[in-house]
């Protein structure tokens, strides 16, 4: 009871305005870095690759002459689940979010943040939000463009599918899942980068975990970000051969549970990251 009271007092008396100002300053610095640095080019490429392919398809098949909407909807669902979610967003977040702290350590500039009167937790949150905004922008835009090109080249039929059929709902779901994927993977890679010097190799282990989670027991499956994301995808994939192992949802979960479940998991990981950074020391060794 006493602890609850002290928490209440803390929340009431906390300098929220000051923290907001600092948070915005951190985000401004980070967003500029994320969008403008040369190392971001590969994220642009990963995000734009499917757009270019679908653009080529649209040119190759004007007005949907060599394809049909059902088939293209299935293909888009496959690309979203198998390329965007499992690889593109995963690797994109890995690059973006591990850079937030590891990059600063490599460039020996993290101490400038640590020497400012900014709570370290605020630094984690600021950097995380900036990374998330960047990832959502890159991949959200990419998915939007992919979707627009995929249905745009069908002409009126495509327009009808989007605005009078299930299209718009699917787009919303894709965008929502993209945001959630960035939230989930972002928190994971921020935390990994604060714990391990080279977070990429554990990242590969996470990739394996995320890929093979459907074969694990039900309890362990819930520790996978992909477990929640798959439930929210609007178009299920056709179970084909070995791929069925990774695409079939054996234990469906309602979106009302999947979304909060993922958010709770991500928040827990972020809280862990905040606890780690409080104890972090500056020791720049050759990386």
């Amino acid at each position: 009871m006493k602890q609850l009271e002290s928490l209440r007092t803390f929340l009431r008396e906390a300098p929220w305005h000051f923290w907001t100002t600092q948070l915005i300053a951190v985000m401004q610095i980070e967003l500029k870095k994320n969008f403008l640095r040369r190392r971001s080019i590969w994220i642009y490429l990963v995000a734009l690759a499917p757009v270019l392919l679908i653009g080529a398809h649209a040119i190759d098949s004007p007005m949907g002459r060599r394809c049909n909407i059902e088939e293209d909807t299935r293909i888009l669902a496959g690309i979203f689940q198998l390329f965007y979610l499992r690889l593109g967003i995963f690797f994109g977040c890995m690059g973006l979010f591990t850079w937030l702290f590891r990059g600063e350590i490599v460039e020996k500039s993290l101490h400038y943040y640590f020497l400012a009167p900014v709570r370290r937790e605020l630094l984690v949150v600021g950097k995380y939000l900036a990374g998330m905004m960047t990832a959502v922008f890159f991949f959200g835009l990419s998915i939007f463009l992919s979707f627009a090109l995929m249905y745009g080249h069908f002409g009126p039929a495509g327009k009808a599918y989007v605005f009078s059929g299930p299209g718009l709902g699917q787009l919303m779901s894709y965008m929502g899942v993209t945001v959630l994927a960035c939230v989930g993977y972002g928190s994971l890679f921020v935390a990994l980068s604060l714990v391990i010097k080279n977070p990429i190799l554990p990242g590969a282990a996470v990739l394996v975990w995320e890929t093979f989670h459907p074969v694990f027991p039900s309890m362990l499956q819930k520790l996978s970000i992909m477990f929640y994301l798959r439930q929210l995808c609007p178009v299920p994939l056709q179970p084909e051969g070995l791929l069925a192992l990774f695409t079939v949802i054996a234990e469906p979960v309602s979106p009302w549970l999947a979304v909060p479940g993922l958010l709770v998991l991500s928040t827990a990981i972020l809280v862990f990251a905040c606890m780690r950074i409080r104890k972090m020391e500056i020791s720049y060794l050759a990386d």
């Binding site: 990963v46 499917p50 392919l53 679908i54 690309i79 198998l82 590969a204």
Partner: peptide
């Protein structure tokens, strides 16, 4: 790992 994904997307599209 990423390039094989791109390759399959290329084939599918």
């Amino acid at each position: 790992f990423l390039m094989p994904g791109f390759a399959e997307a290329f084939n599918a599209i």
